[in-house]
Amino acid sequence: MAKKRKVPGLNSSSMADISFILLIFFLVTTSMDSNKGLSRRLPAPLPPDQPIEDIDIKKRNIFVVKVNSMNQLLVQGDILDIRDLKAKAKEFIKNEAEDPNLPEVVMENIEYLGDVAVTKNHVISLQNDVDTQYQTYIDVQNELIAAYNELRNEYSQNRFGRLYDELPVELQKSVQKVYPQKISEAEPKNYGGN
């Protein structure tokens, strides 16, 4: 017959020390690394044997943003401060008044939304210099994306009384069709300066 033995109580006072060691290990290895960023999609590469053809886009449909080596902006031929870029881009993409100098408005039938006036053919053309600073480039991209995001939000707010992010995925897709993101980037060139 086995003798019944009493299990001695474990001294757990060193538990705190052990967990401290673990804590410090994680504190040291942790790097609050941002895995956030601006998501973009690059265009597919051109086949090498194919000559570069000029796609015919009406002048009113293009919104040209040029950034030079001094990080200055030239928008539609005018010098513009980066703070005004978003408003200008929104005005261009939306073209509420159907201004003949702004992109053409086409009626389109979109799922869940019915007939919507869309500036379907607009293109935002972004050209930057070889010496443009990366931060400026990101600022410009950021403002343009912000313009699209705000327009989508405004539309969702008017139509459904909710923000774009709160809509179900199918509706988000439809709203995306109302304001399709069209940012095209040109090959870098040297604009002034050295």
């Binding site: 960023g37 999609r41 597919a44």
Partner: peptide, 9 residues
């Protein structure tokens, strides 16, 4: 073709 410009808030 799917790229991401890493940035902080």
């Amino acid at each position: 073709l799917r790229i991401n410009y890493s940035a902080v808030q």
